[in-house]
Write a protein that binds this DNA or RNA. Structure first.
Lengths: 188, 188
DNA sequence: TCCGTAATCGGAGGGGTCTCCGGTTCATTC
DNA sequence: GAATGAACCGGAGACCCCTCCGATTACGGA
């Protein structure tokens, strides 16, 4: 994306934009970029050079949390059997979705795959690891496509937490997971 | 929504807007409302009075197709066993999603439930009918929530048909349906 | 220290969405 | 055939997104 500005004024601007954006977007997800730029004391053009799209700005803000989610997947696999790890990880994703409901819309766009792989791919990889472990253990179907599962998960990002969000997320997670389970070996 | 304008000038305007909008949106989903209004020979204000949101306009255009999908559900149940009916109906929804990919984004918003129930509820009802039939027959889980299933289906609306859309939709449908199946009666 | 230049700045501008409200017109009543 | 008021028209205006490009400035070399 934006490897690193070399000039220190540019760097300062970038930092200032991020700080202001964090507050502004926390207050209202739909905060205008115009306002953020103004408040950060830069022109709108500068903001757009640093963050070409609204999503890229938001993703940068949440990059940290997202990374944590991604790192969690292998960690869970070390302390749980694959199926349990999968479920726990899904729950964590759901919780994050509930927390950042406002942000969801944007990340949802990212989930679509139209976005730079930089953010998308690690997520897919994390899922792939979980799925592979499950397949190897025989508890999950063998040929699952991680992108498909991510797409299914993206639904979690759209549950209104105010309206029975937690219960609903749990129900849907169950549906998704059951869909991934290896069919009960019909023959011996 | 907009029950019916009583004055004939209003009605004419409404009709003209719809006609123009159908063409314009077919050409490009992101056609500007400003342009549509201009081409229809009405002020932008008039367009907005008739269709308060962009979605309401689009939904009105596609109301017909949507109704057909809804009517299909009970029809399928009469000629197929519940599970087969469900799958066929899902496939039809997927196909429609593929056809109107551009429109999807908007309908997706509707699917969210934030929209007027006028469009949302019939869809939920159609699903409920299918689910109930399956539950009664014992092939589906007993306490499925149609809204949950609709949410899962909404994912179909976001598959890029250009990139392996058909196969992907099929895969995901399988996952969703498998998640709905009654667990194989473990005992006995 | 001074300079050239490429990176950076930032706002004007084109296009959109949606609201608001003074002016206009239909439909009804007398 | 008026008259009148409710319904409707439509564009100006407020705000936003994003691009483009002339002006500005920091940084490395002479």
């Amino acid at each position: 994306m934006n490897s690193k500005p070399t000039r220190k004024d540019a760097l300062g601007n970038r930092e200032r934009i991020l700080t202001v954006a964090r507050d502004a977007l926390a207050a209202s997800t739909s905060a205008s970029l115009t306002a953020i730029a103004k408040q950060a004391g830069v022109g709108i053009g500068t903001l757009y050079r640093h963050f070409p799209t609204r999503e890229s700005l938001i993703l940068e803000l949440y990059r940290h949390d997202i990374q944590q989610l991604i790192d969690l997947a292998p960690a869970l696999l070390e302390s749980h059997p694959p199926l349990a790890a999968l479920r726990r990880w899904f729950e964590e994703v759901a919780r994050y979705g509930r927390l950042k409901y406002g942000v969801a819309e944007v990340i949802h766009a990212a989930t679509n795959g139209g976005l730079d792989d930089e953010y998308y791919q690690p997520f897919v990889d994390a899922i792939a690891v979980l799925l592979n472990a499950g397949s190897a253990a025989g508890s999950l179907k063998p040929d699952l496509v991680p992108e498909d599962v991510l797409l299914q998960l993206s639904v979690l990002w759209r549950i209104d937490p105010a309206r029975d969000g937690e219960a609903r997320a749990a129900r849907i997670l169950t549906l998704v997971i059951d869909g991934l389970l290896a069919k009960p070996t019909t023959s011996t």
